[in-house]
Amino acid sequence: MSDALLSLEGVETHIGRYHILHGVDFAVPKGELTMLLGRNGAGKTTTLRTIMGLWRASAGRVRFEGADIAALPTPAIAASGIAYVPENMGIFTDLTVAENMTLAARGAKRLADIDTARLEWIFGLFPALRKFWGSRAGVLSGGQKQMLAVARAIVEPRKLLLIDEPTKGLAPAIIGHMMDAFRELKRSGATILLVEQNFNFARALGDGVAVMDDGRIVHRGRMRELAEDEALQTRLLGLSLAAHQ
């Protein structure tokens, strides 16, 4: 796959005594939104953390723009152009929204250095952030925190976004809002690897899809094909769209 921005080849990850990933293989093509689906405990989050270097792969390769990044320290991986939005959002609650954003913009030392046009674009995606710009991030609601977490990942153009369950615990109206934001992100040409449990969300946004089970990739393909094949969904995810709705 020559157009893959990121590819995992036979990645194995151990956490302590536990063998979590058993040879994970899949690729994230440039300019696409790839969904990583699977049941709880299938290894999705571990896969993202392994890409980020927060867990070390004990075998296999993680290729980003052709280079193997599996042995690089986390800050170097971030500096190479990958942004990560963890499941628990990981925003800094004692800092203000503005300070959270400035921290993520490594090109900017001060607030004033952030590209204003880009900031306006982000405010367009998440208007709440403009309103709470000077407030401590700790006072934001769950949905707003999630918006801040995503906004922080895109404050500067990044080559690849890794996003872990952006809809977890959010109200349906906010999920709809989040979906609009991701559509706009896709239009801007971003390459995204998205872990998701919400199948509707995944179906609406995904270009490609990889399904994990028990630390392995059990299916790779186009999202559209999976969305149309209920039997396949039931086999892979243990649920059908109808049952989920």
Binding site: P73, T74, G90, F92
Partner: peptide, 15 residues
């Protein structure tokens, strides 16, 4: 302050 709150997260931001 970011490191105090969440050092993994600060690493993932590239610090």
């Amino acid at each position: 302050v970011a490191i105090r709150e969440n050092d993994f997260r600060a690493e993932a931001l590239g610090y």
